[in-house]
Design a protein around this nucleic acid. Structure first.
Lengths: 240, 240
DNA sequence: TTCGGTTATTAACATTGATTATGACGATTT
DNA sequence: AAATCGTCATAATCAATGTTAATAACCGAA
């Protein structure tokens, strides 16, 4: 089933089969959504959360002029807005980048499943904290790296995360994002993102054609990006 | 007692007196620490968390060359690294910016208090999610704002957070940070931070002398910073 | 009080990345 | 087939920010 990979790229979370089944049991609806749709606008109240089954989704903040900064992207298997369960209203918006399939989980049902199970509660808490760790890595990326480093760092991250759910072989993966998307992730303009991708290509580090990313020299790319994957918590660590 | 302001600037969290007392009861130690000490190095295992009673602390990520990007600052009343409770090892380091007084809480005791109390667990979860919301606002800041906007945004944030714990009157507050600190927060160099502060001063928006910040024209500063305080969740919202 | 360190300030210069514009290309639509 | 639209590509220009370096102001210690 599609739930097989639920939180599979968050090994620290490490759901048991029983817990996985519990979560699967409270799905109220499975929907498919077109690319580039906004699901949840910032500051609106929500009482459901969204698990991503297929496609890529994003979380973003708009400025006054309509420019946006992506603050997270999500790959299949991830709980996109579990944050909304304790928070009820979000400070950011949520939308699709590609066409996507999602499972909807009502907060009321989630509460019933979690409340008597502190272990499960802590695993889900942990999962949201990995999102926070990614935010921090993204802060490092835009705050301390130059344009080439930022794009390289992002590609390293996606490679690692997609590999963890079986969607990258460690060197090649489909990434259906436009250069404009990457610009909004890295805090760059689309024009400069294009230049940077050319530089990475000409330096023989990696290339991105259409929606296929090919990493030519992973070690060098990691080095150029100052990338340390530990923030992704992909290695097994038992929570509490 | 010093615990009066525990999580007081996180109204969504809204601890009851009983909960506050419970948390106070599991403090194993109260320490004072000098300015600019590292408490916890990234990637080391921890089994305690830290509540900040007095002073300013930071969380930061180092790059390979020794430059650092601050990913969070904490003001009195905040749980600095509650993240470490579910995570056990952190992706970032924690240290003091000013001299500080902290209360240490062992995770084992925290677990005993939390496990039978899903409401309290959710409040503490919520508190860590506010940290994540701040990370996102910081991402917006460094990814989408220019240098003046970044510094203005940071000052607006500190003003709002300090006011919530009674350490700002809404226009003036002590902020014992150097320009180099602000540079590491905003992803700028110290030289440029100095330039930006001068611009803010000359534009009549705010001034920072020694460790005192004076906001002259709050409305304009907020506008220049594209600052929307809702991400701080300072207004009362009941969790779940 | 001087001394030595930290912090703030400023200038000159170098560089990155933003801005603006324009064209190519392929996929859709008409 | 023509027109349209989204994406990619590239060039020229320029403003914002980084770099380096030198000095001034401040502050605590002796």
């Amino acid at each position: 089933m599609f739930m097989d990979r639920l939180l599979a790229n968050r090994r620290g979370v490490n759901l048991t089969d029983a817990e996985r089944a519990l979560l699967e049991g409270i799905i109220s609806e499975v929907r498919t959504i077109e690319a580039r749709q906004t699901l949840i606008h910032a500051e609106t109240k929500v009482d459901v959360s969204t698990m991503l089954i297929e496609g890529i989704m994003s979380r973003y903040i708009d400025d006054r002029r309509g420019l946006r900064q992506l603050v997270a992207v999500h790959v299949p298997g991830e709980f996109v807005d579990l944050h909304a369960f304790p928070m009820k209203r979000l400070d950011h918006s949520i939308g699709t980048l590609t066409a996507a399939t999602v499972a909807i989980v009502p907060h009321a049902a989630l509460k019933e499943v979690i409340d008597p199970r502190p272990e499960l509660a802590r695993k889900l808490w942990f999962s949201t904290l990995i999102d926070a760790a990614m935010h921090r890595a993204w802060l490092f990326r835009v705050g301390r790296l130059d344009a080439v480093g930022r794009v390289a760092h992002f590609l390293c991250e996606m490679n690692a995360r997609l590999q963890a759910v079986g969607l990258s072989d460690g060197h090649r993966f489909a990434l259906s994002l436009t250069q404009a998307d990457i610009a909004e992730i890295c805090g760059l303009t689309t024009v400069h993102t294009n230049r940077v991708l050319r530089q990475l290509r000409e330096a023989g580090l990696c290339q991105m054609r259409a929606s296929l990313v090919e990493i030519i020299d992973l070690a060098q790319l990691i080095r150029r990006a100052d990338f340390d994957p530990r923030y992704l918590y992909l290695d097994p660590v038992a929570p509490t």
